[in-house]
Computed example of a mutant assay.
Amino acid sequence: MSIQFDVAIVGGGLVGLATACALSDYDLNIAIIDKNIHQHECLQADKIGIRASALNGASQRYFTQIGIWDDLCSSGRVQEFTEIDVWEKNGQAHLSAQAKDYGYPNLGYIIENHVMSHYLYHYALASNNITLYSQEVIDSVFDDNCAFLTLADQVTLPAKLIIGADGANSWIRQHENISVLERNYIHHALITTVETEYPHHACAKQIFYPNGIVAFLPLYHPNRSCLVWSTKPDYAANLALLSETEFSYQLFQLTGDKVGHCQLINPRMIFPLKARFAKQFVKHRLVLVGDAAHTIHPLAGQGVNLGFQDSALLVSTIKKLIDENQDIGLVSNLKSFQFTRRKDTMVMLAAMQTIQDMFNGDNLFKKALRTVGMNTIDYCSPLKKQLIKYAMKI
Results as ranks from 00 to 15, higher is better:
residue 80 E to Y: 11
residue 387 L to D: 03
residue 350 A to Q: 06
residue 306 L to H: 02
residue 292 A to S: 15
residue 246 E to H: 09
residue 243 S to W: 05
residue 232 K to Q: 13
residue 280 Q to E: 15
residue 129 N to D: 04
residue 392 M to L: 07
residue 322 I to P: 06
residue 84 I to P: 03
residue 214 V to K: 00
residue 99 A to L: 08
residue 227 L to T: 01
residue 252 F to K: 00
residue 193 T to C: 11
residue 236 A to C: 13
residue 310 D to K: 05
residue 179 S to C: 07
residue 73 C to F: 11
residue 250 Q to C: 01
residue 297 H to G: 04
residue 77 R to C: 07
residue 93 A to Y: 06
residue 311 S to F: 10
residue 205 K to Q: 07
residue 179 S to D: 11
residue 31 A to H: 04
residue 359 F to E: 06
residue 209 Y to I: 01
residue 317 T to I: 08
residue 152 A to Q: 13
residue 180 V to P: 00
residue 64 T to N: 13
residue 83 E to A: 12
residue 46 D to F: 04
residue 105 P to I: 01
residue 142 F to Q: 12
residue 316 S to R: 15
residue 62 Y to R: 05
residue 282 V to W: 01
residue 103 G to I: 09
residue 102 Y to L: 08
residue 30 I to D: 03
residue 289 V to T: 07
residue 326 Q to R: 14
residue 128 N to H: 08
residue 142 F to I: 15
residue 211 N to E: 12
residue 195 E to R: 08
residue 91 G to M: 09
residue 27 D to L: 09
residue 123 Y to K: 10
residue 392 M to S: 04
residue 259 V to G: 00
residue 264 L to K: 04
residue 278 A to F: 08
residue 373 G to F: 02
residue 159 A to E: 08
residue 54 A to W: 00
residue 276 R to N: 13
residue 3 I to S: 15
residue 284 H to Y: 06
residue 339 F to G: 12
residue 188 H to T: 14
residue 160 K to H: 14
residue 344 D to I: 09
residue 138 I to M: 07
residue 292 A to P: 07
residue 342 R to C: 12
residue 8 A to I: 04
residue 325 N to F: 10
residue 186 I to Y: 11
residue 280 Q to G: 11
residue 150 T to C: 06
residue 7 V to Q: 10
residue 156 T to P: 09
residue 349 L to W: 02
residue 276 R to P: 06
residue 145 N to W: 08
residue 55 L to F: 11
residue 23 L to D: 05
residue 183 R to M: 12
residue 50 I to V: 11
residue 255 T to K: 01
residue 148 F to V: 08
residue 287 V to H: 02
residue 313 L to Y: 14
residue 249 Y to F: 03
residue 36 N to G: 14
residue 178 I to Y: 05
residue 373 G to H: 04
residue 355 I to V: 12
residue 121 Y to N: 07
residue 9 I to Y: 07
residue 17 L to F: 07
